[in-house]
Amino acid sequence: MNRFKKMAIPYLIWMIILVLIPIVILIIMSFQRTKGIKIFEGTFNNNFKIIFSKDVMQRLWLSFIYSAVVTVFCLIIAYPVAYIIARANFKHRFLVLSFLILPMWSNTLLRTKGIASLFMEGNIFTSLFEKIGITLPTLNWYATPMGVITGMISMYLPFMILPIYNSLEKIDKSLYDASDDLGANAFKTFWKVTFPISLKGITTGIILVFLPCATGFGVAEQLGENGLIGTYIKTQFDNEATYGVGALVSLIILVIIIGALFIVGKVDKEGETLL
């Protein structure tokens, strides 16, 4: 036991420097109004007033709605895909999976910009088809909810597919035989065996998609949406005078995330979901 404790020391130091101390600074800063990170020089200021302003509340709400819609659509699309690959009999399952995951390997910024450009006039498809005399209608989805949600779905879909595929792939094939043996047809087997066992993968997928959607700003901004909470936090930190406000909003989101993970931990005692 002692040896394990010693081996944990580097990680402990790492956690203290990069997680604990920043959070403490964040907490202190959230009560101040300073220029830049000057912890003990700023004046105490009640940032809560700004937090409960209409603007921030609207952004929180919009972020929540967007993330919820994106998560639901990701789930609807990802589950059948993961299911088909996991149950398929062909040898190169992993290769097929890789093709779905492949976009993840390219630069996020570039990818988002690319998607955004498809929603605008004069994109690569319309100009190509114009050359051969076909006029394609432009989607004109840039900076519309439709475009933002579609872009976000394409961005986060792999994060939903992978954990669900993992949980489905791990199911012992003999369970399907057993279910069949015990009188369940294919439909019943899915709802009474496959789906309940894959719930852990679904939970992981939801966490992996919902959280970055709700708190990130890069993807949304590239798609023309500046009204989300992530953008707000970023703006506060861009502007030296409002670090305190940014810190407070970040803290609130942090509390929400920790709360969500705490609930997941309560439900899933073995912690398998987050693995």
Binding site: D172, S174, L175, D177, A178, S179, D180, D181, L182, G183, A184, N185, V193, P196, I197, L199
Partner: peptide, 20 residues
């Protein structure tokens, strides 16, 4: 005839109990 329509039940090699 599929298994669920036969008056037969099986005890599997590694039991195949439903973990959930």
């Amino acid at each position: 005839l599929p298994p669920h329509k036969r008056p037969i039940n099986t005890v599997f090699q590694r039991y195949a109990l439903f973990p959930h």
